[in-house]
Design a protein around this nucleic acid. Structure first.
Length: 474
RNA sequence: GCUCCCUUCGUCUAGAGGCCUAGGACGGAGCCCUCUCAAGGCUUAAACACCGGUUCGAAUCCGGUAGGGAGCGCCA
């Protein structure tokens, strides 16, 4: 049996790193087994679902580097892949359940239920459905229907017994039925509820492995009960620990673990996030930046951690650095240009590759690329305070020598600096620090040799001239 | 409240009774390399939540305690 996994988001907001990781693990598992990864949109809540979020969600997932073999956009044999388009299927299976007497209408209002829950909680009771409508007889039901009341449908959970299943990450799970209240499978407005549609779709779509958040662990017996009653096959379940922020609290946006589009806007490269997320709560033998297919080869449900994983920005930064160093020049250029289109006017098309390769070692965010583009290609130069100080610490002799050397011909930086050092009687830091300060306006940065090659002789000369002027001034 | 899950360096984790003097990675510290900043190389500090039990032997098995989390929704 080929492995079939699915990611089943609700289009009610942007994809968060937690969901993205779940999607990634599902995709990784399917890819490892040469199986199929399915995207299913759970848009049964018409009020909160938004097609714009669905589009954004697909874009975010694709940006991360995930692709799905079946889904609302690519189709597939088990469609439709939007729950809002699967109404007929749900009625059919609802009827089957009703035919077995496992379903009953519930006329309780939201307010009544809420009061009941609060009362139970106050009395130290589990806030479970009390079963008010479970015992209604036919005439009572008809009387209510005649009044125009619209009931929700509840599943009748067996009184005794237990549901047992083997969780792929947590092992054997046992849940007593008496701890589970009768739950809603169809809302009063006729739409299917999560427990029902989600379980039925997994079965109908032939999903073999459900990887989902740990928050669903205690819900699993409900779905198993449904599937069992319907005679549908149950998938294997693997419940992933959640991602938490500082102190173990649920992830908050302040901590940088926001939505994918925020991370992207921040300049995080998808390869960086991909590698970080793949290792968050999962072990890989390799510590090198890998592509999706290599990550897939090493993916193992048995290597998933059991405890909540902290989203650590420092570790993401490490992968970001790796990603920047490994990205191809064109890709890196696009990354910078997307963040600041103006950079295209600064850097000549023919020099973009050389420019990117020269500065990539000093980048973590695209804006830093813009900074370097200005330093190299913009006529005006912003000089940092430290660079200014470095210039003030040398005599004009250095820049006089530099200008003479430059005018004698514009060689590579190495022979140039060697000649300048010789005539000015300087070497090492005393020589390079002021030269760097004069030419770039800062004390840190890529090798001077590479920057030098990108700057035309007249610009080099003007900068040295300016530095000479500064030293004479002080 | 009830049910369930979780607990190894600061962080992600390796670890399925002796291979553990607990390994790796990120981050930290130091050294080397080097014109700077990075990168790279080397070195180093840093953890089995606690208490009992089983065993010749426990991070690993069992019980309890503590602390975190989830579920108990006409949200998914």
């Amino acid at each position: 049996m080929t492995t079939r996994t699915r990611f089943a988001p609700s289009p009610t907001g942007h994809v968060h790193v937690g969901n993205a990781r779940t999607a990634l693990f599902c995709a990784l598992l399917a890819a490892r087994d040469d199986g199929r990864f399915i995207l299913r949109i759970e848009d049964t809540d018409a009020a909160r679902s938004d097609r714009a979020f669905e589009d954004a969600l697909r874009e975010d997932l694709a940006w991360l580097g995930l692709s799905w073999q079946e889904g609302p956009d690519v189709g597939g044999a088990k469609g439709p892949y939007r729950q809002s388009e699967r109404g007929e299927l749900y009625s059919e299976y609802l009827d089957r359940l009703a035919g077995k007497g496992l379903v009953y209408p519930c006329f309780c209002t939201a307010k009544e239920l809420e009061i009941a829950r609060k009362t139970q909680l106050a009395a130290g009771q589990p806030p479970r459905y009390a079963g008010t409508c479970a015992k209604l007889n036919t005439s009572e039901i008809e009387a209510r229907l005649a009044k125009g009341l619209k009931p929700a449908l509840r599943f009748r959970v067996p009184e005794g017994g237990e549901t047992v299943f083997e969780d792929l990450v947590r092992g054997r799970q046992v849940f007593a039925h008496r701890d589970i209240g009768d739950f809603i499978i169809r809302r009063a407005d006729g739409s299917p509820a999560f427990f029902f549609s989600n379980a039925v779709d997994d079965a109908l779509m032939g999903v073999t492995h459900v990887l989902r958040g740990e928050d669903h662990l205690a819900n699993t017996p409900r779905q198993l009960l449904l599937l069992q009653s319907l005679g549908l096959p149950a998938p294997r379940y693997a419940h992933l620990s959640l991602i938490v922020g500082q102190g173990g609290a649920p992830l908050s946006k302040r901590e940088g673990g926001g939505s994918l589009n925020e991370l992207r806007a921040e300049g995080i490269l998808p390869e960086a996030l991909l590698n970080y997320l793949a290792r968050l709560g999962h072990t890989y033998a390799s510590n090198a930046l890998e592509g999706f297919s290599t990550l897939a080869k090493g993916f193992d449900v048995g290597h998933l951690g059991h405890s909540p994983a902290h989203f650590d920005h420092q570790q993401l930064e490490h992968w970001q650095g790796e990603a920047v160093r490994h990205a191809g020049p064109e890709r890196l250029w696009c990354w910078m240009e997307a963040a600041n289109p103006g950079i295209a006017d600064l850097v000549p098309a023919a020099e973009r590759g050389a420019f990117v390769d020269a500065v990539r070692g000093n980048l973590s965010r695209p804006s830093e690329g813009t900074d370097w583009a200005r330093i190299v290609y913009d006529e005006s130069l912003a000089v940092s305070a430290e660079a200014q100080a470095a210039l003030g610490a040398v005599t004009s002799k250095l820049f006089e020598a530099a200008l003479t050397t430059l005018k004698a011909g514009a060689p590579e930086f190495k022979p140039f600096s060697k000649a300048v050092g010789a005539t000015a009687g300087l070497a090492g830091k005393d020589l390079f620090k002021p030269l760097r300060a004069a030419l770039t306006g800062r004390l840190d940065g890529p090798e001077m040799e590479r920057l030098w090659r990108l700057m035309p002789p007249d610009r080099l000369e003007r900068r040295l001239q300016q530095a000479l002027y500064e030293t004479k001034k002080t």
